[in-house]
């Protein structure tokens, strides 16, 4: 597996507040890499920097050799971002939303149709795709957005709290979809404060607190290192 994404010395300040204080990590091809930590740890800020939404105060990010600062357009062609609590255009029908998003990535109408079909499979919303997004439940919107995020088979999918606000069944389905796409070669960078979910999903994790990486490794390796039964205990031990 080759290296897909490399982040070095990432820093981000908002005025006097430094949200990210020098973070390094890499994501390999087909790997699910997770940032875990409590609220306000700097996970979302880090994901937003990689998603080209925020400009890092310092540090570099490269994806497939493209520098984010120098070539953000090229970066965007290869990523797909699913923000936490993201929404879709309420006045558009589900299928129209997918078509709208597919047209940004597709070179031909046939490509766009293929992307939409894949998104429909992922979302599994059936006939409800002909209804307006405004009529969807939170779980349905999340599935639609996950379909949108993965339909183009991006080099890197950035998923911020992918199961946020979902019930148990929907969460399980979303996790299985993410696993399946990673196996097909899509790299995934995700964040969550649900450490049990991360343990199930991730190949490697980075423990983040107050804008710094406390430790990183495979879930099994970290549990062994800290002699802990799960990642929650690992995190507590790492904080000490």
């Amino acid at each position: 597996m080759g290296m897909m994404l490399k982040a070095e010395g990432l820093r981000k300040s908002y005025g006097a507040v430094e949200a990210v204080k020098g973070i390094d990590f890499t994501v390999d091809e087909g790997e699910i890499f997770a940032l875990i930590g409590p609220n306000g740890a700097g996970k979302t800020t880090t994901l937003r920097i990689v998603a080209t939404l925020l400009t890092a105060t310092a540090g570099t990010v490269t994806l497939l050799g493209h520098d984010l600062r120098k070539n953000p357009e090229k970066f965007r062609e290869n990523i797909s971002y699913l923000p936490e609590e993201a929404g879709a255009y309420r006045n558009l029908k589900g299928r129209d939303y997918l078509k709208f998003m597919a047209n940004f990535y597709a070179a031909t109408p046939a490509d766009a149709a293929g992307f939409v079909r894949r998104a429909e499979d992922i979302a599994g919303l059936g006939d409800r795709l002909t209804s307006k997004v405004g009529t969807y439940s939170k779980g349905m919107v999340r599935k639609l957005l996950l379909g949108r995020a993965l339909m183009t088979r991006p080099a890197l999918a950035i998923l911020d709290e992918p199961t946020s606000g979902l019930d148990v069944i929907n969460s399980l389905e979303v996790r299985e979809i993410i696993k399946r796409f990673a196996k097909e070669g899509i790299s995934v960078l995700l964040s969550s404060h649900n450490m049990l979910e991360i343990e199930f999903l991730s190949d490697r994790v980075a423990l983040i607190d107050k804008g710094r990486v406390l430790d990183s490794g495979t879930p099994a390796g970290l549990k062994e290192k800290y002699r802990a039964p799960n990642l929650e205990n690992v995190f507590r031990s790492a904080l000490r």
């Binding site: 998603a51 939404l53 990523i79 993201a86 255009y89 998003m101 940004f104």
Partner: peptide, 14 residues
Amino acid sequence: QNKTLETLLTVPIP
């Protein structure tokens, strides 16, 4: 408000 701006800003369009 609908949290669609963040997604739009990450699509490959200037």
